[in-house]
Amino acid sequence: MRVAFTTSGDSLDAALDARFGRAPRFLVCDTDSGAVEVIDNQKGMDAAQGAGIQAAQTVARAGVQAVVTGHCGPKAFRVLSEAGVAVYTTDAATVAEALERFRSGGLTEARSADVDGHWV
C-alpha cells in the first residue's frame, strides 16, 4: 500500500508537516516493500488559491491509497474522497513516527475535513 506523508524534509526522520495543501513535499512510503519516494508539492506551495485541491490531485496521480497529515481542509478532503484516497490525521512529530502509528493501526480514517480552509 502506498501512503503519502506531508513533510518539509525528504527522509523518514524528517518532521511531519501539519499542513496538507501547503506542505513542501510528500514522502510516499510503500508499506509492503519499504520503498520511499519524495514528491514535490511546489505547485501547491505556489497556488494563490486552491492549494489543497492542487495537492490532492498531486497525491492522487501518484497512485497513493492513503494520506497521513496533521490536518485536512474541506476542498482537499472532497478531492481525496472522490479519488478514493483515505485521509488520516495525526499529531506525530516525524514521518517515521506517523508511519509507525499507521502500521500499528493507531490512526483512524477521517470521515470529514477536520479544519476549515486557510486554517494556519
Binding site: 488559491q49 486552491g50 485541491i53 492542487q54 490532492a56 490531485q57 492522487a60 478531492v79 472522490e82 479519488a83
Partner: peptide, 16 residues
C-alpha cells in the same frame, strides 16, 4: 482548480 476531474466525474468549486 475550480474544476477537478481525476478519472471520475468532475468536482466543481464555484468559489474558486
Amino acid at each position: 482548480h475550480a474544476i477537478v476531474s481525476l478519472a471520475t466525474k468532475p468536482l466543481v468549486f464555484p468559489e474558486l
